[in-house]
Amino acid sequence: MLRRNKSYLINICIILGLALIISACGSDNNESSSSSKENGNNNAEITLDSKKGKVTIPQNAERIIAPYHEDALLALGVTPVAKWAIGNSIQNYLEDQLKDVPKIEWNLPLEQVMKYNPDLIILSNTLDSYEGSYEDYQKIAPTYALTDEAAGNWRKQIKIFGKMLGKEDKAEKVLNQYDQKVSNAKEKLNKAIGDETVAMVWTMGNKFYLFEKDRHIADVVYSKLGINVPEVVDSLGKAPNDAWNAISIEKLSELKADHVFLLGMKGEEGIKTLQNSSVWQSIPAAQSGNVHVMNDPSHWTNQGLIASKKTIDAIVETLAE
């Protein structure tokens, strides 16, 4: 009987010991799983379609170079390690967020890129415009080249960048907020100006450029805000890629718009030229005092969520408040 009880106790001890080992292993596995999940977030990668086919990039990138696409990054709360520039020319409308960020030349010289030690490089679709080849940049850091479609569509850029950086919820949120802003602005402007027409003229170097209806911010003004297009603007058709064609003052005399936003830096010679031109002064907007001079053309001549928001604010403040 005693021998049987001893055997029973031994079996119980073995069972309890095994239970403790299994429990410990389970705890270790849970900790390992939790640790793996945390490490997974730190080392996560994502594969996306790009101009160069499928490319795998890290989602934990912090030092990002994305020349001329800083608008989309900033919309997601991400500050690049360097900002686009052509000499001293920069995207002025972003300077409230990028004033302390150093410049990098628009064609991405390889030495400059290496100096900033990026862990992600985002290129536009026009790869021939860069100093280095795609492969050169890939040797420095994981490199993503935007597709033709995404390069010309800032909403798609925000969604792609959201996927890249694990900020898809943020991307959806900022786009929804923007859509609500557009809706509110459209309602205000409809009440304020009704069927009146609006045109945008940019002056630089005493030359004048009339925005086609799909040129940069004009697409927001006409397509999203629902503002009517003047006849002469409609006759221009689609904007030819990124090329700007100067227009003569004589041609501007045909601009029968109710409101004109005249865009030019403070002291720009072209603004003075138009103010002293009897031809310009004869157009309806000038005669009614509805030529609105804007001394920061940068967000009007760019594409992006921030550029659009700034332009919408300017239009609403000028015409509806």
Results as ranks from 00 to 15, higher is better:
residue 1 M to V: 09
residue 5 N to Y: 04
residue 9 L to I: 04
residue 20 L to V: 15
residue 21 I to C: 12
residue 25 C to Q: 13
residue 31 E to K: 11
residue 34 S to V: 13
residue 39 N to D: 12
residue 40 G to V: 07
residue 42 N to A: 05
residue 42 N to V: 08
residue 42 N to Q: 12
residue 44 A to S: 12
residue 44 A to E: 15
residue 44 A to I: 05
residue 47 T to D: 09
residue 47 T to L: 13
residue 56 T to W: 03
residue 65 I to V: 06
residue 65 I to R: 00
residue 65 I to L: 06
residue 69 H to W: 01
residue 70 E to K: 03
residue 75 A to K: 02
residue 79 T to K: 14
residue 83 K to F: 13
residue 83 K to P: 00
residue 91 Q to W: 09
residue 99 K to A: 12
residue 110 L to S: 04
residue 117 N to H: 12
residue 120 L to F: 07
residue 120 L to T: 10
residue 121 I to F: 01
residue 123 L to S: 11
residue 127 L to F: 04
residue 129 S to V: 02
residue 132 G to T: 07
residue 133 S to Y: 00
residue 134 Y to K: 06
residue 149 E to W: 01
residue 150 A to M: 10
residue 152 G to H: 11
residue 152 G to T: 13
residue 158 I to S: 07
residue 163 K to S: 12
residue 168 E to T: 11
residue 169 D to E: 14
residue 171 A to G: 11
residue 179 D to L: 13
residue 182 V to F: 06
residue 185 A to M: 08
residue 186 K to Y: 00
residue 190 N to M: 04
residue 199 A to F: 07
residue 200 M to R: 09
residue 201 V to D: 08
residue 202 W to E: 05
residue 212 E to D: 09
residue 212 E to V: 04
residue 214 D to F: 10
residue 216 H to T: 03
residue 221 V to D: 10
residue 221 V to L: 14
residue 224 K to F: 13
residue 227 I to P: 07
residue 229 V to A: 08
residue 234 D to I: 02
residue 239 A to V: 00
residue 256 K to L: 01
residue 256 K to E: 15
residue 258 D to I: 01
residue 258 D to W: 01
residue 260 V to G: 14
residue 263 L to G: 08
residue 265 M to Y: 15
residue 273 T to P: 01
residue 275 Q to T: 06
residue 275 Q to A: 08
residue 276 N to A: 02
residue 278 S to W: 02
residue 292 H to I: 15
residue 294 M to W: 01
residue 295 N to K: 03
residue 295 N to L: 04
residue 298 S to V: 03
residue 299 H to R: 05
residue 307 A to I: 01
residue 314 A to G: 01
residue 316 V to T: 04
residue 320 A to L: 07
